[in-house]
Every structure is written in structure tokens, then in C-alpha cells.
């Protein structure tokens, strides 16, 4: 019997394809996001609101990951956005290769921002790099204030966290301080945006998108580098 030493990242192939995706979007000057959250936390609702509010301002493309239906894609299409749907079947997450094929179906020219709605799941999508510029983790107050602590991998991996459905704070037991403390311990650098999508309280999010998009374009030399924020003091 002999031992063969290897020492290699198990998801090496995924990561290689992710790197190709990353380069492709970088060349096109498109900022892109992997949006990860549990089922029903409000991902599609956030996209609908974002598309409506930023209509005519920045060009947005969407990739919608869904287990079996095209309902999310239809909702997004109704907002007038380019959307590509990936049905994962039993798969609980998107991987870089699925996204590569979806990218083939999107015309990247003229696009400023691409958002991927990952399959509703707080666990499985986290470890799979798609090539995105930013991973956004989404929670909602209905799920309880312990969810950051119970999902340290998402909190650690996220570049931005959204806490949605804050309009329901008076109805559910959720202590924002507990949530924030856990996040602070796990990932001191990450910002938390408290939103209510249904009440259209999403301005910090929109400002963040506008500024990130402008930066990505400035790096490739397209677009206007001077964005005007919707509100002052956004993150």
C-alpha cells in the first residue's frame, strides 16, 4: 500500500471556472453580485424593487436560480429586466459552471450590473465561488435573531449583509443588538443594511449598487465615474 500526497482544494475545478467568469465580467465592466438567503427572505422582492427604482439609471441583468419553477424569473421579467433562469432540479446551490452557461445567454454589452439570485438556502451556496464581485447575504427578521450565529459561514463569506422585513420588528421577537453582536464577532468588517423591501425602504442598498457599479465601469474606462447618490450618507 502506498500513499499519494496531493493537498489540493476539492473545489478546484469550480474555482477555475469561477475565475474565468470573473475575468469575463471584469472585461465587460459589469459589477456582479451573488445574492444568498433562506427561502422567502425577500430576494426576488428586493430585485423587483431594485429594478423599478433604478429603471433608466443603470442597466441590470438577472440570473435566477430556482429548484423547479420559473416563478421568480417571470416576476423579474415583468419588471422589464433581462433574466436568465437556471433550474437546478434537486441541486441546492448554483455552481460556477451553471453560471458560465447562463452568461452565454446574456448580452453583456450595455449591462452595468448583474445580480444572481441563488437558490433559497443559507448553507449550500456559500462555499461555491461563482466569480462574483460581491457576495450578499440576506436575512429577515421573521427568521429570528440567532440566524447569524447559526450560519457563521455565510456571515464570514459575505461582503454585505441585508436584514430585511424590518417593518415586522414590532410583531416578531427579534433583538437587532443580538444579531449585530454575532455579526460583529464573526465578520467585523461587514456592513448590515436594515431594509423593508415591501415598504420600499431600500435606499442604502440602491446607493451601494450605484457606487459599486460606477467603480467597476471606471476600472474598464466605460461609463460615468461620478455617481450621484439617491440619499446622502449611504454606505
Amino acid at each position: 500500500m502506498s500513499e499519494i500526497r496531493i493537498v489540493q482544494n476539492v473545489l478546484k475545478h469550480n474555482d477555475e471556472i469561477a475565475a474565468m467568469n470573473r475575468q469575463r465580467l471584469r472585461d465587460a465592466g459589469v459589477f456582479w453580485i451573488d445574492l444568498i438567503g433562506s427561502p422567502g427572505c425577500g430576494k426576488t422582492s428586493l430585485l423587483e424593487t431594485t429594478l423599478r427604482r433604478l429603471h433608466g439609471r443603470i442597466q441590470i441583468g438577472i440570473i435566477a436560480g430556482d429548484l423547479a419553477t420559473d416563478r421568480d424569473a417571470k416576476r423579474i421579467q415583468a419588471c422589464g429586466a433581462k433574466v436568465v433562469q437556471i433550474n437546478t432540479g434537486k441541486g441546492c446551490h448554483l455552481d460556477a459552471n451553471q453560471v458560465r452557461h447562463a452568461l452565454d445567454e446574456i448580452d453583456l454589452t450595455g449591462l452595468d450590473l448583474l445580480i444572481i439570485e441563488n437558490v433559497g438556502n443559507l448553507i449550500c451556496p456559500v462555499g461555491f465561488d461563482l466569480g462574483q464581485d460581491a457576495k450578499v447575504g440576506m436575512f429577515s427578521v421573521c427568521q429570528g435573531d440567532d440566524k447569524a450565529a447559526k450560519h457563521p459561514h455565510l456571515v464570514r463569506a459575505a461582503d454585505l449583509l441585508i436584514l430585511n422585513k424590518t417593518d415586522l420588528l414590532q410583531h416578531v421577537r427579534f433583538h437587532p443588538v443580538t444579531f449585530r453582536d454575532d455579526v460583529e464577532k464573526l465578520n467585523p468588517d461587514v456592513a448590515i443594511m436594515e431594509l423593508s423591501v415591501t415598504e420600499s425602504r431600500v435606499d442604502p442598498w440602491l446607493d451601494w449598487l450605484i457606487s459599486k457599479t460606477a467603480k467597476a465601469q471606471a476600472q474598464t474606462g466605460n461609463g460615468s465615474p461620478e455617481p450621484t447618490p439617491l440619499i446622502q450618507g449611504g454606505i
Binding site: I6, Q8, N9, P152, K185
Partner: peptide, 28 residues
């Protein structure tokens, strides 16, 4: 990850943790 330190502090940072490595195989 949420262990406090023996010095009494709760300000503890997790570092790393995302390893997923094929280390070796044993063959005949």
C-alpha cells in the same frame, strides 16, 4: 466559534476555517 477567551474577553475573532482539502489517497 463563540467561545470566550480565558482572559475573560468575549472579543474573539475566528480566523480561517474554510479549508476543504484533498490531502492524500492510499492506493494498492
Amino acid at each position: 466559534w463563540s467561545d470566550p477567551c480565558t482572559c475573560g474577553s468575549c472579543r474573539v475573532d475566528p480566523v480561517g476555517g474554510d479549508e476543504l482539502t484533498l490531502v492524500s489517497i492510499e492506493v494498492d
